[in-house]
């Protein structure tokens, strides 16, 4: 892992940039509901990747790791994602169908888009934002701030009722970031959870 000499964007700058990305997502959704617009999701993903790129030099994102360590991070991520899927399996909630699964024809592009969104979010929330906050307040505080930002971001998509769940999941992903020392594990866990919860259940 490589530590930064000087952050390019302070934590508040990262949060403000995420806010701009969210506003762009809402604007580009037009008359459609935000969570239903793949185009708006592409805009959001592109902007998040831009935020991550702006902090490329000062982040641990590009830290080179040995293959063995990378495999370990992927394994941690898969395990972390499976835990989240199992959570949904064990506690499915009422038999209420409010979310549609992608059709067979749309499964591949949908999966690619979901993986891109999950990766971009992790690069920002458990990557650049985590690094920036951790320098000021420590890793635990960084995990909390990242989880809060992650939860608030999803309020726009799913309403306030989703906030506690997303806060908890954000902390889980932040813990994976602390445990593994990089964004690979939370990114893999996030992608596995999203795809698993939608495609398997």
């Amino acid at each position: 892992m490589r530590s930064a000499a000087r952050p390019l964007l302070p934590p508040l700058g990262v949060l403000a940039a995420v806010g701009v990305a969210l506003a762009a997502r809402v604007a580009s959704a037009g008359s459609a509901t935000v969570a239903e617009s793949p185009g708006a999701a592409v805009v959001f993903t592109a902007l998040l990747l831009g935020i991550a790129a702006a902090r490329w030099r000062s982040s641990v994102i590009h830290a080179s790791k040995r293959t063995r360590a990378a495999r370990r991070d992927i394994a941690i991520g898969v395990a972390g994602g499976v835990v989240l899927v199992v959570l949904v399996l064990l506690l499915p909630g009422p038999p209420l169908h409010a979310w549609s699964r992608p059709s067979a024809a749309a499964a591949v592009p949908w999966t690619l888009l979901v993986v891109c969104i999950a990766t971009a979010e992790e690069l920002v929330f458990r990557g650049v934002l985590f690094d920036a906050v951790a320098r000021a307040g420590g890793a635990g505080f960084a995990a909390l701030v990242g989880a809060l930002a992650f939860a608030v971001e999803h309020v726009l998509l799913y309403g306030w009722r989703a906030l506690p769940l997303d806060l908890g999941v954000g902390l889980w992903l932040g813990g994976l970031r602390m445990l593994s020392g990089g964004v690979t594990a939370p990114a893999v866990a996030h992608a596995v959870a999203d795809c698993g919860a939608w495609l398997v259940l």
Partner: peptide, 30 residues
């Protein structure tokens, strides 16, 4: 931190499952 997050997510699923999405991030295409 992970255990705290898991406890919160579990509590959220138990206490207010109605309306909580079955996922944490995605694109719903009805």
């Amino acid at each position: 931190v992970m255990l705290l997050g898991l406890a919160l997510a579990t509590g959220a699923r138990i206490a207010a499952p109605l309306g909580a999405p079955p996922l944490y991030d995605s694109v719903a295409i009805p």
